[in-house]
Design a protein around this nucleic acid. Structure first.
Lengths: 148, 148
DNA sequence: GCCACTTCAGTTGTGCACAACTCAATCGCG
DNA sequence: CGCGATTGAGTTGTGCACAACTGAAGTGGC
């Protein structure tokens, strides 16, 4: 790749990635708004549903977000009665997160979202796989390079 | 695609897209920070450099951003002395944007960023093309569907 | 046991994204 | 021409992302 003129593509990729991410969020917004959720809250809940009970630290590792972002987000989810937060007893630095019954019940109400999204995007399984592969590569490169 | 179980892939895609977009921003951040720019400001400047002189409306159309986002961003670029803003004379609703000499000079200082990004990502031309195609599809689907 | 070091969650401040809104300028129909 | 509808930029308020920081809790070397 070095030595090749990629200026045109880079321009498109860096912008298109940004735009596609926002477009995806817009696709979800109406459905999530009906449940009183934002897109990042939905992503956090998916991890919480999957894991059942985890620390803020582990949620941050899964979502690649720090406590500066998660603390206020989790405070809002707790305020909505969707999750439970409680200090660890053995290690009082950690905070354990778990869904409340109301929070757990919400999982059923978003159960069809993945399918509806897949239909809306209208990509083949191969395209999904390709996309996933490429996005993972970008995240891997960012983690490795740390800067350009 | 309808009727296929895509739950697993969707989960990954919706999160991976979000994470990859943030990772890309992180890759650029150190280089842009040295110039006093944020990533959205950089994207806006690319359009401004390319077009030379355009209205806030046209910049918003190019970036898919509304005046609510652009007005404060452009105010900061103007305050840094990188762009010029002036009301149109024939139509006083419009505001024309153009780079100042300092703003135009900045283009040379980011000239190698695309190449450095391409090297860091280490994708082939085919992969870049694939990625661009898939991201465009997502944006297109979002524009068409408007909701899922 | 003591103390420097690290870890974890939370806070503060800045900037972006977006909805909802304001307000002036312009347009277009009758 | 007159006036309602539309357009363009800006403002306000909410939430997310992230850097930089705080402070309490735990850890390890001595």
């Amino acid at each position: 790749m070095a030595g090749t003129d990629t200026t045109g593509l880079e321009q498109m990729i860096c912008f298109e990635l940004h735009a596609a991410s926002r477009a995806m969020t817009s696709l979800y917004r109406p459905a999530l708004e009906a449940l009183g959720l934002t897109y990042p809250q939905y992503l956090a809940l998916r991890v919480i549903w999957h894991r059942g009970r985890l620390t803020v630290r582990d949620l941050g590792a899964a979502l690649r977000l720090d406590s500066g972002t998660l603390s206020p987000l989790l405070k809002r989810l707790e305020h909505q009665g969707l999750i439970h937060r409680q200090r660890g007893t053995d290690d009082e630095r950690t905070v354990w997160i778990s869904p409340t019954p109301a929070g757990a019940a919400l999982e059923h109400r978003v159960a069809d979202l993945p399918h509806r999204l897949a239909c809306a995007l209208d990509l083949t399984i191969e395209e999904f796989t390709q996309l996933h592969h490429l996005l993972t590569r970008i995240r891997g490169a960012a983690a490795t390079a740390s800067t350009i």
